[in-house]
Design a protein around this nucleic acid. Structure first.
Lengths: 214, 214
DNA sequence: TTTCCAAAGTGACCTAAGTCACTGTCATTC
DNA sequence: GAATGACAGTGACTTAGGTCACTTTGGAAA
């Protein structure tokens, strides 16, 4: 087993554009926290006390409906920050979404008490924060476009393409009912649509995984 | 006709929590711009050169589908800033949404060149920006909740309640087809649902307006 | 090998909501 | 006052997609 990367390694490799002083502060004050696969990182109603920079693993952000439905929004990957944790932390508000580690994940926890100074002192931090917001905002806009303007089959195609892109693999290890959950649909519908896509040659279906061909 | 409020009036009354220095900068560097009812303030693909603080009127933000459908997101009112104009302006990116004045509207245009210094110098500005983001983010989350978890009649109720709340009147001057547009539905469906709501006593229907009773 | 269970396939059915094709009804202007 | 056009009401029909009630299948555990 190889040596664990240190906080310094993570900061240097994932946030190369940060000013040296900023990196130094993050390294000194950040706290590395580990999450198991399946562990909740943020829950509706929870009060955040730190901003999280993801340095390893994969985090799934989703909205939870009144009846417990999940609705997938986007993934966070190493190098990303949780926009919501930034807002909630800064404003001392509670979170409105759920964040779950889908793989073993490590996050660099930045205490909220630092936010003010970081924002003021380091231009690269302030740009990073704005960039984070912008990206997530646009991600949400895309989500809205999809659910309001597109039909299920289009949304499914988009979803699979996104999985392919985000997880960087053609072998999508996901069950039909997980997809149905993410899209807030039902398994049967997804199965039927997937079959059609298979007939069209977009993918091939297997037990427990889908080969995305397009 | 009464005297036009000056930029100073607007800033003092709408942004009382801003630091004196910040107010001064805004007053000196901000440019008051007038928009007619129906005029576009921001369009998909447009490159923003300023951030906008709304000081008078009402602005409707909506998403446009490929086929030209509109999908209502939220209103901006005096005292609000356009979160998107902030992001787009700062990052020199193009906007992804449409903003249209629904009433004669005035906006204080803040050149993007100021953003960096404002952010750095004035804590109240940086809080204001974050607050703006957070609010709009949550507004989008609510939109997502509605379209993904709710049926048309629930969405319609929510829409009317929001109109009532945002526009602060029980007399909603809006046609059925405008509502249909905003919700990306069709007039007939909205008419039918409205009729049901009338039967339930939630509202009463009239030509060109709806009395919201609840 | 058998057993067991999660994952997936499938037909029948239901329902919300979109579409079509009208009719009716105010309000303005000519 | 007739005509026009925007707004609204309504029935008939279509369709995507959700639901139900099964069956089938593959792989892991026993």
């Amino acid at each position: 087993m190889s040596t664990e990367p240190s906080i310094t390694n993570y900061v240097e490799s994932l946030f190369p554009t940060f000013e040296p002083g900023l990196k130094k502060v993050l390294i000194e004050s950040g706290d590395l926290k580990t999450f198991d696969a399946g562990e909740m990182i943020m829950q509706t109603g929870q009060n955040m006390r730190s901003t999280i920079l993801i340095v390893e693993g994969l985090v799934k952000l989703y909205r939870e409906g009144d009846d417990g439905n999940e609705f997938f929004m986007y993934y966070l990957q190493p190098g990303n920050a949780c926009a919501l944790s930034m807002i909630c932390a800064t404003r001392q508000e509670t979170s409105q979404v759920m964040a779950k580690a889908v793989e073993p994940t490590k996050g660099l926890m930045i205490p909220i008490s630092l936010m003010d100074t970081l924002m003021k002192e380091y231009k690269s931090w302030y740009y990073f924060v704005l960039e984070t917001y912008r990206n997530r905002f646009e991600e949400l806009l895309t989500v809205i476009d999809n659910i309001s303007f597109k039909s299920m089959d289009e949304r499914l195609e988009f979803y699979l393409a996104k999985q392919h892109r985000d997880l960087n693999t053609r072998k999508l290890q996901i069950t039909h009912s997980e997809i149905a959950n993410d899209l807030n649909s039902s398994r049967e519908v997804i199965s039927r649509l997937l079959k059609k896509m298979e007939q069209r040659g977009t993918l091939s279906l297997h037990r427990n995984y889908i080969s995305y061909l397009k």
